[in-house]
Design a protein around this nucleic acid. Structure first.
Lengths: 336, 336
DNA sequence: GCATATTGCTGACACGATTCAGCATGTGGT
DNA sequence: ACCACATGCTGAATCGTGTCAGCAATATGC
C-alpha cells in the first residue's frame, strides 16, 4: 500500500490552532453539544479541507468498537447465476448507510463457515448478514449466537430472529391467478422440492393451491423433478409421452421452464397456442425463451438491500419480513 | 454487536506470567528469533488456548498498517450472470491467504467508484482488485494511483500494471481448431463487439483468423450483432432468410448461441446434423441447450483467484497474465 | 579470574483516534 | 463583593497491539 502518509487529527488540530479534542468534537458533529464557537468550527473545517484529512478507521475502530463494515456470509450466492444480485443489493444499501460489505463464501462447508465468521468478528464487523442460495430453513451457526445478525433468504424456525425472505406463498397465488385470469382451470405443476429443508417449493405450492381453491379447483397433476433444465426436459417429455396434457403449466423455476419448452417443442406443442405457462424466479432466462415466459420475480436485490438496512437499524423489531414477488408478463400465457 | 468482551494480549501475558512483549513475539512466530525458551512458548500457548484469545485486528492494523483485507471494486460483476464467479474465486483465494474481501460495486458510476475507493483506502485495505464485467481497456481510476492494485478482466494500455485477463486470442484459435478438426472449413462468425473499448471480440476474432490461416482459409462471413439472445436470434434469422448457409458457426458467446439455436430451429436446420456450432463463455447456458453447445470456457473463478494471489504476492513482477480458455465439448459439433 | 558473548526476557513508546473531567474566563444576580 | 452559572476550550487517559532498546543472569574464551 504505497500511499501518501495522510494527515492525522493532530495535524488538523495544529494547523487550526486548537486541541485534538476540539477538532475531534467538531468532526464528529458534536460542536453544538460542546458549545464550540462557530469561528473555531470554520477554522477546523478549513484545515480539514486544506490537508485533505481523512480519519484513520483502524484507530477509530479501536476506540469505538465500530467499523462501519458489515459481514455477508453465504453458502454460494456469489457464484450463483441470479442470486448474486442479493450481493449487489446488499452492497448498495450498505453504501447508502456509509458502510462497506465484507463477503465470505463457505461453499456449504461448516468448518470454513466457522472460520469466516471468526475472521469477521475479529475484524469487528458491525453485524452479519447470513445468506443462503436457496430459500430454506437453517440453524443459526453457533458463532453468530449473540451477534447482531439478519438472515437472508432463510429462516431459523427454532429462534426468533430477524430474517428477510421472498413471499413465496404470495408468489404462488400470483402465478395461479395469472392462469385463472386467462380462463385456464386445468393446471399442472412441474417441479418438486429436492431438499427437505427447502421452503420455496412447499410455499409456492401452498399459494397455488390456495388461489385455485378460491374457484373450487385443485391442481390437476404434479410432475415431480429437480429444478434444472435437463430434469425439466426429461420429466416433461415423459409426462407428455404418457399422454399428459394441460391448458396451463406452472414451473417451479425458469430453468425448469426452459426444459419444459424444449419438451413441448419436441412434442409439437406450441407456447402459448397449445399450452400456457407461468414460472418462477424472474431470471433473464425467462426473457430469452421464445416466447418470453411469464414469470413471478424473485426480488433478489431488494432482499439483499433490506437485509442490510434491517441489520443497521437499531429500531428494527426483528422477526421475518416477506418481500412480495411480482409477475413479469411474457408471451407464454394466452387467454382461452 | 453483543459479544463477550474477549481476552486481550495483556490477559494472556498475565495468565502465562510473562510480559506482553514476550507473548506478542511468540504469537507472531518470532519466538526463535527472539530466543524465547520453549517452556515459555508452551506456557503462552496454553494461556492462549485457555482464554480463547484472538488478536484485535483494529489494534493490530493501527500499528502495522495492514488489515488482512483486500478491496474488490467492480462495475457490475456481482449482479452479473456468470462473471460473478470471479467474486467466488477472489474470495476463496483471499481466505487461503488469510485475508477477507471487501466488495464495492459502482454500477459504472465514476463518482460512486471514487467514493468506494476512498472508503476502502480509509479502511487500509492491503490492496485493491479492480474488476470489470466485460473484458476491456480501461483507465486506472485516479484514486488508485500509487495504490497496490491488480486489474481483473481489464487492462490499462497506458500504464504498466499488473492485470489478469482471459486469453481470448488463444480461445479464438481453440474454437476454430474444433471446427477444423471436424473437417469443417466453411466458417461463419456471429457477433461483433458492441463497445469500442471491449477487447474480447477483436481478440477472439484474431485467434479465429490466425487458426484458419494455418489452413489457408478465411472466415466465410461475419454476422454483426450484439451479444444477446434476442439479437442473436434476429441476426441469425435474417442471415438465414437471406440465403446464408455455413457448415460451421462460431458464436461470440453462449447467449448468442441460444438465439442462433432458436433461429436455426425455426428455419428447420438441426444442430449438429446440418450445422456445427461453437461458442464462447462456458456458461451453464451452453449446457442447457439441446444439444449442449461446445463452448470455450472463460475461467472466471481462476481469474478472480489469480488476481487476488498476485495482489498479495510481493514478488509479483507485474504485467499482464493471460489465463488459458479451454474447450468444453458439448454435442454441437459433428465431423464431416 | 576477568572481559565478553549469549540467552531470555521486559519497559516504554508509538499507532490515531475518542472522551471524561476539569480549567479559565466572562456574565448576571443579589 | 461574592457566588453561581454558562461558555469555550484542553490535558490526559484509553483502546490493544507491535517493536526498539536495554537489562540481568549465565556461559565462554584465554
Amino acid at each position: 500500500m504505497t500511499r501518501r502518509r495522510s494527515a492525522t487529527l493532530r495535524d488538523v488540530a495544529t494547523s487550526a490552532g486548537v486541541s485534538r479534542t476540539t477538532a475531534s468534537y467538531i468532526l464528529n458533529g458534536r460542536a453544538d453539544e460542546m458549545r464550540i464557537a462557530s469561528a473555531t468550527v470554520a477554522k477546523v473545517q478549513a484545515a480539514v479541507a486544506d490537508l485533505g484529512y481523512r480519519p484513520n478507521r483502524s484507530a477509530r475502530s479501536l476506540r469505538t468498537q465500530r467499523t462501519a463494515t458489515v459481514g455477508l456470509i453465504s453458502d454460494q450466492i456469489a457464484g450463483e447465476q441470479y442470486g448474486s444480485s442479493m450481493l449487489t443489493g446488499a452492497s448498495v444499501a450498505a453504501r447508502e448507510l456509509d458502510h462497506l460489505v465484507v463477503m465470505g463464501e463457505s461453499g456449504g462447508d461448516p468448518d470454513l463457515e466457522r472460520l469466516l465468521i471468526e475472521e469477521m468478528l475479529e475484524r469487528d464487523v458491525d453485524g452479519v448478514v447470513y445468506a443462503t442460495r436457496t430459500a430454506r430453513a437453517i440453524q443459526l451457526p453457533r458463532g453468530l449466537r449473540g451477534v447482531r445478525s439478519v438472515l437472508l433468504n432463510c429462516e431459523d424456525p427454532r429462534e426468533q430472529l430477524a430474517s428477510v425472505v421472498p413471499d413465496d406463498e404470495g408468489g404462488g397465488r400470483a402465478a395461479a391467478a395469472v392462469l385463472l385470469a386467462a380462463g385456464i382451470e386445468d393446471v399442472v405443476v412441474v417441479g418438486e422440492d429436492p431438499a427437505l429443508d427447502a421452503t420455496a417449493g412447499p410455499r409456492r405450492m401452498a399459494g397455488i393451491r390456495a388461489e385455485l381453491a378460491t374457484r373450487g379447483i385443485e391442481v390437476a397433476d404434479h410432475v415431480a423433478c429437480d429444478w434444472s433444465v435437463p430434469d425439466g426436459f426429461e420429466a416433461a417429455s415423459q409426462w407428455l409421452a404418457g399422454g399428459g396434457r394441460a391448458a396451463g403449466l406452472i414451473c417451479m423455476n425458469d430453468r425448469l421452464a426452459m426444459g419444459v419448452y424444449q419438451a413441448l417443442a419436441e412434442a409439437g406443442l406450441r407456447v402459448p397456442e397449445d399450452v400456457s405457462l407461468v414460472s418462477f424466479d424472474g431470471s433473464s432466462l425467462a426473457d430469452w425463451l421464445r416466447p418470453a415466459a411469464t414469470t413471478v420475480e424473485l426480488p433478489f436485490a431488494d432482499l439483499g438491500a433490506l437485509a442490510v438496512r434491517r441489520l443497521l437499524d437499531p429500531e428494527d423489531p426483528g422477526g421475518t419480513v416477506s418481500v412480495p414477488m411480482t409477475v413479469r408478463h411474457g408471451g407464454s400465457v394466452r387467454p382461452r
